[in-house]
Design a protein around this nucleic acid. Structure first.
Lengths: 236, 236
DNA sequence: TCTAAAACATGACAAGCGTCATATTTTATT
DNA sequence: AATAAAATATGACGCTTGTCATGTTTTAGA
């Protein structure tokens, strides 16, 4: 963590002057986590601001009876806990877990806000980032409030292709390992329902494989399922 | 709009210097709306940044088949369309409607971001505001994904008491006019379901009245319904 | 390679909530 | 005060999804 240019890898820090990065370098700690660990738990004090450096992190909320929702899956460059970081003294409203090997940067809230005050461009960037996140959260609200299970799952698969997949012979292979349970938690359905729907999707040749190697075969058709609104003019 | 101190009424603008408010005063337009009108519609170009000055505004998303979700009810001082304001050229992802008489301030996006770059304190304040909004949106996700209709409605009533009610003889009277349909749209259930549940709540003396004068009689019990998690240690 | 654990799969059944239909009451407007 | 429109109310019915139970397959770790 000596060389401040390490931070350049993180988009946010491209916007601050080199001298500022120098200063921040001393404040930033990097920590590695592996599956099964917690980056922080619900209720922990929210002292730090976090950034994903490598790997994938999920933000999870758990209800009293053990049910879970995954609020968001975060990838390198993503900030997390922005929401908690703003409450003075309040604890984390959810927990953060690595999905595999991850590396996370951590910066004390105070240092973070001070840096932003000295770097208005970075502050505006953070505003835009939060705006995007808020927009995503609102889309999710719409989906949960108005759409059925099939539609939600189809929509999720489409967005996963867009966010983290590679083309291969047959379609788009997801580069994140996601079990049916993971998928279920992301869209507010049960694991059994996710399994059943994925079964149907598989039989309809829309997808193939399981967590280890989940591939989307027919993206257009999934898109159609996700937004049944749009009356496709089929010429047949 | 000549006197820049008009803007002082808006918390955000307290953080900028008087000279800055002077400059902004020229950029800000105030518009009044009444029920039935639209402040903007889904799909309109998002050129402006909005702030509620007086009254109540709701942000709504509509699905292709006419169903609606209310994302958020905004009160004086609240910013809206922060989420849309960040996308260059993209249209509004939802619409904004007045709930009664409202007055709205409007500021061109460019002017807004420039102001923030010159006023880092205001920028940090906006970051905190967005953080809070994001947090709320995530809570909503949790509610929609994990809770049943009764629980959602109870939770909504509790938060409405906290946000906009006055004490009266029997309980907390809401100061916003909300029909059962409004309530339903806020928590992703149908109007009929909302009516039925409100009926039960009324019979159980938890609430009374309708939109015109909706009063919460038994807040503690509603809170309990909203988070059944917490095992109340009842000493009987 | 073996073994335990996790993930995937499928069925039966019930609950919850949406849908549609119809009726009454309240509110707003002339 | 009269009338139309909106809001509240209630019932019958069925679909979607959750729940629970049980079994098979895959994955990970010793």
């Amino acid at each position: 963590m000596k060389n401040p240019d390490h931070l350049k890898a993180i988009p946010l820090f491209n916007l601050v002057k080199r001298s500022e990065r120098q200063r921040l370098a001393g404040e930033v700690t990097e920590t590695r986590y592996r599956k099964g660990q917690f980056i922080f738990r619900e209720g922990d004090p929210a002292e730090f601001f976090h950034i994903v450096k490598e790997g994938t992190v999920k933000c999870v909320k758990t209800s009293s009876d053990g049910k879970e929702v995954t609020l968001k899956v975060l990838m390198p460059g993503d900030l997390f806990c922005c929401e908690a970081a703003v409450f003075d003294g309040s604890p984390h409203p959810g927990c953060a877990q690595p999905m595999g090997e991850v590396s996370v940067l951590r910066l004390r809230k105070k240092a973070y806000f001070e840096m932003l005050k000295r770097n208005p461009d970075a502050a505006v960037e953070v505003i835009k980032y939060l705006g995007t996140r808020l927009h995503e959260a609102q889309e999710k609200t719409k989906v949960l409030a108005l759409e059925g299970a099939d539609q939600r799952l189809a929509g999720l698969l489409v967005s996963l292709v867009e966010r983290s997949s590679v083309r291969d012979e047959s379609g788009y292979r997801l580069t994140v390992r996601l079990t049916r349970q993971d998928l279920a938690n992301m869209v507010g359905i049960t694991t059994e329902t996710a399994i059943r729907i994925m079964g149907r999707f598989k039989r309809a040749s829309l997808v193939t494989g399981t967590a280890k190697r989940l591939t989307i075969l027919d993206l257009p058709r999934l898109k159609q399922l996700a937004s049944p609104s749009v009356l496709q003019t089929s010429h047949s």
